[in-house]
């Protein structure tokens, strides 16, 4: 077993445990902290794949900004321990079956396509950050400008939604 494989398995186990903990924890703030563990583990996997810019963005934007927003809202709303009714416990059974069916479908697809994926595999360290900036500001410049518009609309939407109605 080579060193990258060991690192992969450690980070993958961390990510899966974090996701399980998200489901297991009753309090939303514990779930949020579990999700941060998943995101940091995924950032480590991106580094392992040589996508250092995506890893940095993942840490800064996802586990930094977005999760801070989540934790802030949880504290703002004073969210307590979630309550399960008998109906929701019942919904877990078909939910679990559906998830197993979905995972089986995805696994079958991967197993069938594994040869083509492996055939396409070519190692070669591509200069990640420089290449990404070239692509974002050259090939994808219109979608990039559109995202700024999307963020503007999202800011306005959040403001309109969260403001108190004047009585």
């Amino acid at each position: 077993m080579t060193a990258p494989l060991v690192v992969f398995f450690v980070l993958a186990a961390l990510a899966i445990l974090g996701a399980l903990s998200l489901i297991w924890q009753k309090h939303p703030i514990h779930s949020a902290l579990s999700l941060i563990v998943v995101m940091v583990a995924l950032a480590g996997l991106y580094l392992l794949m040589g996508a250092e810019f995506v890893a940095a963005v993942q840490i800064i934007v996802y586990s930094g900004a977005i999760m801070v927003l989540f934790v802030l809202v949880i504290m703002l709303l004073n969210a307590g321990i979630e309550e399960h009714t008998s109906i929701s416990k019942l919904a877990g059974v078909p939910g679990l079956l559906l998830v197993i069916a979905l995972a089986g479908f995805i696994a079958a697809t991967i197993a069938r396509s594994s040869e083509t994926v492996q055939a396409a595999m070519q190692t070669g360290a591509i200069s990640s950050t420089k290449g990404i900036s070239n692509m974002v500001f050259r090939d994808f410049v219109y979608p990039f400008e559109l995202t700024s518009f999307l963020i503007l609309v999202a800011i306005m939407g959040a403001l309109v939604l969260a403001q108190r109605e004047k009585s």
Binding site: L20, S31, A32, A79, E82, L96, V99, A103, I106
Partner: peptide, 18 residues
Amino acid sequence: AILFGLGVFAFVFKRNII
């Protein structure tokens, strides 16, 4: 795929909207 499945399960099973 495993993480996506766990996400789907959490989406179906959890009751807190956050």
